[in-house]
């Protein structure tokens, strides 16, 4: 009986560590132990301390079953609880030397933390992009961009309606541009290839000239094919270009009347304008973006569009 009780006591210590769920069981086991050993508490407690660990696992499995039996036989008051408590704390300490941490818990914690971090980072980026897209999306008349009627590099009529259904990357430039426009158009070609590699045929690259007097469709065609065969060059008469520039909030300084052969430069805004498939302005991409960064910005917007807005039918053609 004694040995069994010691084991039981060991079990009690084990149970004590366990959470509040087991409290009723633990209390009854206590009573059982206390009552059977009350005459010689000191020695028996030492034994308990020794045997406790050995018996712990055995007691653990048997405790519940045994307790029921013991509980029925012995139910008496005990005065040795305080000393027993002290012992218990020491044992609890010994057992929980490492605290509540173990390898599995650590891995679980790290995995959860990592997962949450990634999720929130992505969600934050997505929300920021959404904010930019919504903030710049016009309610009614768009703030940037708008209807235009120009001529493409093949001499065909090209209007803003031809842009609907796909994202558009609009750049304003001129073929006699010394250094910035060629650099930016090279970048545009890289951006276009990268976006297409990621999102398929979802983007139309467009260059609108600010210098219609010199940039005829033929000149544009010859000029742009050196950058990318897919870039569409748009020109028109001075008034049409002026109106388009105004719609896109583009500053340009082309003189309205130039003599043939006159040599001049055009000062103009150098942003790429990303327009969504409905023709609304999404974001302006400046020179500080590398081709990779710009391609990422565009691809992310394109992916956002496909997802939440569900306008896939627009992509049919």
């Amino acid at each position: 009986m004694s040995s069994a009780c010691n084991c039981l006591a060991g079990g009690t210590k084990t149970l004590r560590v366990a959470p509040a769920l087991r409290v009723p069981v633990q209390t009854s086991a206590h009573r059982a132990f206390a009552s059977s050993h009350s005459p010689k508490p000191a020695t028996s407690l030492r034994t308990v301390a020794r045997n406790g660990t050995q018996c712990a696992s055995k007691a653990n499995s048997n405790a519940a079953r045994r307790i029921n039996g013991v509980q029925e036989q012995m139910r008496s008051f005990s005065s040795s609880t305080s000393r027993q408590k002290l012992k218990t704390i020491e044992q609890v300490r010994a057992r929980n030397k490492g605290g509540p941490f173990n390898v599995a818990a650590a891995l679980l914690f790290l995995a959860t933390a990592g997962g949450l971090y990634i999720y929130f980072t992505q969600e934050k980026e997505r929300m920021a992009r959404k904010r930019i897209a919504e903030q710049t999306k016009g309610v009614g008349k768009p703030k940037v961009g708008g209807p235009f009627e120009l001529v493409d590099h093949n001499g065909h009529k090209f209007t803003s309606d031809d842009l609907l259904g796909k994202y558009t990357l609009v750049y304003f430039g001129f073929t006699h541009c010394p250094d910035i426009c060629p650099d930016e158009l090279d970048k545009m070609a890289l951006m276009y290839d990268k976006v297409v590699a990621q999102c398929g045929d979802c983007l139309v690259p467009i260059m609108i000239t600010c210098d219609p007097a010199r940039d005829t469709p033929a000149v544009l065609k010859e000029y742009l094919v050196e950058f990318h065969p897919r870039i569409i060059g748009l020109t028109g008469d001075y008034e049409a270009i002026k109106d388009t520039c105004k719609a896109y909030r583009v500053y340009f300084s082309t003189p309205s009347h130039v003599k043939p052969g006159q040599d001049y430069l055009v000062d103009h805004s150098i942003y790429f304008y990303l327009m969504d498939p409905e023709g609304d302005f999404v974001e302006a991409i400046g020179r500080n973006f590398t081709a990779d960064q710009a391609a990422k910005v565009i691809s992310d917007h394109v992916k956002d569009w496909e997802g939440p807005l569900k306008k896939k039918d627009r992509w049919a053609d």
Partner: peptide
């Protein structure tokens, strides 16, 4: 050109 601009800025 007569004004000193490129004829073809290739």
């Amino acid at each position: 050109t007569s004004g000193g601009a490129f004829e073809k800025p290739s």
